[in-house]
Design a protein around this nucleic acid. Structure first.
Lengths: 479, 479, 479
DNA sequence: CACGTTCTAGAATATTCGACG
DNA sequence: GCGTCGAATATTCTAGAACGT
């Protein structure tokens, strides 16, 4: 009975418990249940006061129970003798490894370790430390990222400025380029008008007929404009057919021509360059009082008519040779004049002031001064037309050719026109593309990351800072 | 005495210890040291067997000692009666807060806690809370960063589009510029050639033929265009042919000149506008066979004047005529000079007309009006051709030349045409390029950093997306 | 006894406890301590079996104790109880508000509420796990962000390169455009000067005197250059002074004028365009065998020579006069023609060379070749001057004018020059601005985020990579 | 929900054993 | 062997929790 040994690895409590439960002498106080899988304390008081002290250093049932619980024993609630005898209501405990006759299972009965302190706590402790480290690490990296992001943000701001700058530059360049092109175009245009007058006749011979895909309005308008302008400015526009000696006529014609040319050179009338013309002519008129003469001005036709008329009268005289010569020379000179005219128109037509202002404009891409062009062009046109005015003078006999020529010449010009048109289209398309983009500038929907605050509202300011400058230009369509 | 109660916060062991040490009845077994700072167990055996069980649930000295140690008591090694009586050798323990008469210090005696659980766990608990807070903070910041990154990504996408746009614009501009230059170049070229022509007659002897590196088509088209335009606009192109003597000659001279212009019209010479000039000169030469004659070109007025004067003297009357003529011619020549002047002014001054349209266009960068250029240009071209067209006036006898001229002129136009064609092609190609490029705009295929997924390979595709469009241009070497 | 009432707010347990402790009938089982601040259970067994059931629904001491604990009662350990024997050892409990005679304090005895501790601890545990998960999650996301940031960084690098590329392109384009404009300007300039010469006489009448805001040096140098060039290339530069009639004078005058023109003009014909001219004139000479005369070529001298010769012949005989006149006129006209030619050449002429080199330069925007412009312009100017050379021919009587003209012409050219100078300045300023901007490039103070290292030092390398390219251009002002 | 009852667990201390220097 | 301590267990007291009222 007392020989019972405490087996290895079996806690004292379990050993003692087994012993006292299994001891037959105390079966009235504590014993196995009927099925042997539980044990009962039949007499609580005696067990506490008699048994417990024998096996343990206390006599507290609670302490015993505590140990039971500590080793995983569970109380069994017996429904049986509930009523009758509360006293009989025995305490009954159970444990899977605590069964009658199965002493070998006792070793599996393990005492609960107080709140898993050692491992569990430590583990969690370690985890927590690790977690803290991780957090710190993450935090550090986050700071790094934050810094990088911030730096990149700054870079991007600069980039935006760069791009904005480039855009502006591009716009300016585009404007400059446009000006150059337009200038060039207008130059060409000017020439056109001038040239028109003189050359018609010869063109006829040329088989080529100009495709009339040209935009007359433009030219005409110019002509008209010039005519109009000069019509008023020139008092001597009335080409009076007169029967005057050749010389006179020639002279007159010449005068007219040269005058015209002269007028072109300097100017005080209307705008600038055009003025002198008026003067010259006026002077001519004055000097040629006797001769109603050919103060051929504005339009070629008039001039031609007058010339023809005169020519007709001339034809009659003897000195005809001389006259002819004169005519010849006259013609030649006229040709020269017209060539000049054309050349001038060609070269510059528009040129006059250009330098002073045009170039300025070119390099002062402030569009504000753009308005200047208008007046200039007008003046230019004027000049041109006036110019052309004096150019033409031809003999009757050659009248036929010119007509034919004009036809022929028409062809070529048409082609040219079409070509130029295309060119313009190209340029225009270019522009258009650009301009079409313009309205969209407002976009730049960048929503710059809010650096410091939580989020988003920077975009507005940002856009304002960067997008506004792009307004005058074109901006590519965003998104 | 026995009433001693367990004070607050003083462990049972310490209380018991104090009691049993301080109890006079056990002074022979356990007592204070003489100085009262230590206590001694004089009779180990009796203490263990008699005293311990009274106060504790055991009778193991070791357990008692264990408790002493557990509460920080230390054994005092007494050197005194070491030898004589080992038995007498009493156990002596000490503790700073365990002194005779100083019962109040007992509360400072703390039991050693094994696994520091309480604090440790609590600390870890606090740490854990802190860690959790940190995590939340980090998470919040991360969200912020994420947002910023995302926003910046968007910005970058826009930036990319901007850059792509700028690149496209640049390309277009470059193309436009190239066209301008080319056009200009061809124009200049044309003129060159033209100028050349006039001199042809003279040139003929000279083996040298103008280097035909020019593209005709272009010029021709221009000529035609101009002709066309002016042909219509000018009703009076018909130079009345007059059968006059001198006049004729003069005419011839003129014709010659004009003829030259004609010849220029067709392009045998290289380019375009230049043609007429050549013609004039050729004709002059031809027409003036007998007369070495001065088909002076340069300045009209002066020349004319001088010519007239001379002519006058020659042809008509002797004195006066001559004089008059001279004056006349002189005047005319002066006029020519002034014309030249004007022309120059024109060239430089150009401004005048430009304004009206040119500037308007310039500053109404709406490309829509850009088309205007075309017509203008066309007109311009026309003018040129027309120019050459009307310039020519010839006598019957000189009809041959004209024909030849016409032939020649035919060539020129053709050449001009080809040139313009080329130009157009360029422009067109430009357009095409542009337009073709346009569709690609949609690209901006920036593959923004993969927002959600992990990583990296975007760069390649990215570059591909953006580099391709730049092909026609120069693209900076990436990476 | 039983009359005791349950006060408000005093839990049943406390009331019952007070009652049973305070009831004198059970003082042998449960009673107040001597001092009345505690209560004792003297007979545990009887208390359990007899008392408890009366007041409570159970007879478990443990349950009772549990309630005591629940209401904050504490067990009092008496030393004495410790030693002797369990039986004697009475259970003693205490509570601050449970004192004998102080029934009113009972209301302060509160039942403990489950302090949710379990949850707390468990939660912390769970929280820890959650925290760990969070950390991992955050870490993962951070890696993602890091990657994205890195990718975007790479994109940005490319963007920077792109922008740099665009800037370079823009600069090149700007340069090209400047060249074009300059070229154009120089062209215009050339014309201006030329024209100036002739018209003076007429100009005189006009009150307007050209503001001499021009910078001679430029033009002059050009002129000189051109003169120099042609002086050598033309063998016939020697203008023989001849005592000839008016014609001579005229010639002389012309010479003077032309000379002036020469001086004023600049030229580029030198290289290319000028050549054919020379040819033409040579040819002319050949064709005009009988007349030694007008081998009017590119150069004035030739013209002068020829004129002089003719003039000489004229002076003598009448017929001759006529003839001479004719010749004279012819010459003059020829001169005009050649002038035209030259003008054309001038205007376009350049092309020859221009194309070869100019355009090349234009499209090889290597600035290194930018210097080429000068020579070209110079050549151009030359041509012009040459041109003007042949244009003017005046009679003796008119010699005065020429002189005046020359003077006058100086003015005009001066003006032109000033204009051009301004133009050049503009261009230069442009360039200068550009160049001046260049040094600033170093800026690009971007401080790209340090990708890998902690922070900042990348900027240097970064800037080097990107800023350098911007050197030649202007770079937007960075911050 | 508040309180009561019961069973179980936590916690501090106590006891014991063993390791270590 | 001795002193100290770690560790497991024991004892005690208190608390947690489930369940019931």
């Amino acid at each position: 009975m007392k020989t019972m040994k405490k087996n290895t690895c079996v806690p004292g409590f379990v050993s003692k418990l087994w012993t006292l439960v299994d001891s037959p002498g105390t079966n009235d106080v504590i014993c196995w249940s009927l099925d042997g899988i539980n044990f009962r304390i039949l007499d609580e008081h005696r067990f506490t006061k008699e048994i417990l002290p024998k096996y343990f250093k206390h006599s507290n049932l609670s302490s015993f129970v505590r140990q039971l619980n500590m080793y995983g024993f569970r109380k069994v609630i017996s429904i049986e003798g509930g009523l009758v005898k509360p006293n009989l209501c025995a305490l009954e405990f159970t444990h899977v490894y605590f069964q009658r006759g199965k002493e070998d299972l006792l070793e599996h009965i393990k005492r609960k370790i107080s709140s898993v302190r050692t491992e569990d706590t430590k583990i969690s402790q370690e985890d927590l430390c690790k977690a803290l480290e991780d957090v710190q690490q993450v935090r550090g990296k986050q700071d790094d990222i934050d810094q990088r992001l911030h730096n990149m943000k700054r870079e991007n701001v600069i980039l935006w400025k760069e791009v904005a700058s480039l855009r502006n530059k591009h716009s300016q360049q585009q404007r400059t380029l446009s000006k150059v092109i337009q200038f060039f175009a207008s130059l060409v245009q000017g020439n056109c008008i001038i040239g028109i007058k003189n050359k018609r006749p010869l063109m006829l011979d040329v088989s080529e007929t100009p495709p009339a895909k040209i935009s007359r309005p433009c030219v005409l308008s110019l002509d008209q404009a010039s005519i109009a302008m000069f019509g008023s400015s020139n008092g001597c526009n009335s080409p009076s057919s007169s029967g005057i000696s050749i010389v006179d006529i020639t002279d007159n014609a010449k005068q007219g021509t040269s005058t015209t040319g002269l007028s072109a050179a300097d100017g005080d009338s209307v705008l600038t360059s055009s003025n002198f013309m008026t003067k010259d002519k006026q002077e001519n008129v004055k000097g040629k009082d006797p001769n109603p003469s050919l103060t051929v001005t504005g339009l070629e036709d008039d001039i031609l008519d007058s010339i023809l008329q005169e020519g007709g009268s001339e034809m009659a005289s003897h000195q005809r040779d001389v006259t002819l010569n004169r005519n010849d020379i006259q013609c030649h000179l006229d040709g020269v004049d017209s060539s000049f005219e054309d050349l001038q128109t060609l070269l510059l037509g528009k040129q006059f002031n250009i330098k002073a202002e045009f170039i300025e404009n070119l390099f002062n891409p402030d569009l504000s001064d753009a308005e200047m062009d208008m007046p200039e062009n007008a003046a230019n046109m004027e000049l041109v037309s006036e110019w052309s005015g004096n150019t033409t003078q031809q003999s009757v006999q050659e009248s036929a050719f010119p007509l034919e020529d004009s036809k022929g010449s028409q062809h070529t010009p048409a082609q040219v026109l079409s070509l130029l048109e295309e060119l313009c289209c190209t340029l225009d398309s270019d522009k258009e593309v650009t301009s079409s983009g313009t309205p969209k500038k407002g976009q730049c929907p960048i929503q710059p990351a809010n650096e410091d605050t939580g989020t988003t509202d920077l975009s507005t300011a940002f856009l304002e800072d960067f997008c506004i400058p792009f307004n005058d230009t074109d901006s590519t369509p965003f998104l």
